[in-house]
Every structure is written in structure tokens, then in C-alpha cells.
Design a protein around this nucleic acid. Sequence first.
DNA 1: CTTGACCTTCCCATGATGGGAAGCCCGATC
DNA 2: GATCGGGCTTCCCATCATGGGAAGGTCAAG
Lengths: 133, 133
Amino acid sequence: MNISQAAAASGISAKMIRHYEAIGLIPPAGRTAAGYRAYTAREVRILAFIRRARALGFPLPEIRALLALWSDRDRHSADVKRLAVQHIEQLEAKARMLTELASTLRTLADACSGDARPDCPIIESLVSGERPA
Amino acid sequence: MNISQAAAASGISAKMIRHYEAIGLIPPAGRTAAGYRAYTAREVRILAFIRRARALGFPLPEIRALLALWSDRDRHSADVKRLAVQHIEQLEAKARMLTELASTLRTLADACSGDARPDCPIIESLVSGERPA
DNA sequence: CTTGACCTTCCCATGATGGGAAGCCCGATC
DNA sequence: GATCGGGCTTCCCATCATGGGAAGGTCAAG
């Protein structure tokens, strides 16, 4: 299977497949006589695994660990769970931060008349650092 | 005022002040005879404005627009509000996405025994793409 | 045997930030 | 007035994950 077929089958772009190989996330693919990368169904499964982990928001370093756990027959599910829970906490922390920002800004926007006049609590807050009352 | 003093006064690192100048977010600072950048209180106020906008999660392109609106005496508060509301929606959309990811992953993690056995719904879901029942 | 689609590697860009090197400058101390 | 520590300058590189594009080799169909 050529790289573009592996890309279509796995949902990872050819560009990224090469990149993952370059950074050692996946082992180097076999090559045809002409130097084309050749992929097996097994390798496509690995790529799809990576795609699903990315879709769950795992960064590549953590995916590296997940791949290692996947291929480790003697893994402890506790190790996988710990990784996942840690990641969940990071996702939730980021979400909370964004929600807080949005709510702060929403308060400012609600106080802004949004008409043709120049006076605007949003700008004023950025200028002074104070929240309007 | 030297760049490090402007940095301390504005809360923006000297590194970033130079960067903002390089990308044209702020006009080039004046220079002393020796070539050192010199900052006035006015420029520090601009930098603090940028810092506060960043703290609210505005990306630099939007901050560019906010700076233009700030210095525009004939601005319409509606323009500021539109920018802010658009940004709020982006923040909320991102937050929703992260929350969803966390909740999906939480379901998987809850189903994982987290002990010494290798069986793990998290890994299985990444392998098959199916959520365990 | 040409043509078009594919493959290869290599470089560059994103967005915001930081690290670090090489070299110049300023002020204070001896 | 020489020296030294710290601050300033520019320039390059790194992050994280991804994509764009160029230059050149290869394959398959007409």
C-alpha cells in the first residue's frame, strides 16, 4: 500500500505520516525498490490508533506512551488509566480557563451599548485594567 | 525608559516587545544615540493594553483591530462589541469542544478497572474506534 | 514514449513565546 | 582610565501539530 492509500485508510494525511516517521512516533516504513514507502494493514491500524488518540486531544508525547502500552502485553490498565485521567484533568482545566475568559468578556460586552457612540466598557477595561461597575 | 523597564511596567517581556515591534503590532520605538530602544509612558500604556487583551484571550490580529479602535476617536462601540462577541463565541466553542473530549474520555476511564490487568476499554476504544458498551 | 498522477526530500509558514549566542554599551568601582 | 557586571542589540533556533509548495524521480495508462 502506498502512502496516500495508507493515508486514506487511516485518516492521517500523507504529510503527517512522514512526519510521525521522522520524529520516531512510528517505525520507518518499508520501501519499494524505487524508494516508495510501503504500508501493511498492521501499520494502518497503528495510524488509525494515533488518529483516534489525537481526536481525543492527546498530544503526541502521550500518544507515544499509549502506543507503548498498546504493544505491551504485560501492561497494567492502571497505567493507561493514569495517563487518561491526567489528560482529562488538563482538558478540563483548559476548558474552565476558556469559560472564565468568555464569561469575563461577556460581562464587559453586555455593558457595552453597541451603538454609534464611541464609549465602550470593553476598551475602557483594556485601557485601565479596571472592570466597570 | 529602557526596554526592560518598559517590560516591568507593562507586564510584557522585553522579548515580546521586540517581537510586537517586528511584526508591526506597535510602531518602532525611538532609539538612543547608542541604539537602545527608548519608551515613553504612552507606549507603556499601549503595551499594558496589549497585555490585558492577551489575558482575555484575544489573538494578536484581533488586538491589532482593538488598538486601531482604541485610537479611533470616531469609533462605534458596536464595532468593539462585535469583535468581542465574536471572540467570546470562539472561546465558548473551544471550551465546549474540550469539555466534550474530557467527558468522552471520562466515560472510557470510568470503565477501566485501573488495576494490574492489561484489559482496558481506553486502549480498546483507540484500537477499534468503538466505544465499549 | 508521453502524460499525468504519484512519490521522494527539503524548506518555509503558522501563533505566541522563550532560550541562547555574539557583540556592543553604560555605569560603577578600584 | 581600565575593568567588570549587567543590559542592550540582532540573529538563529525551539516549541506543537499541521500544511504548502518546489524540485526531481517513478509509475501506469494511453
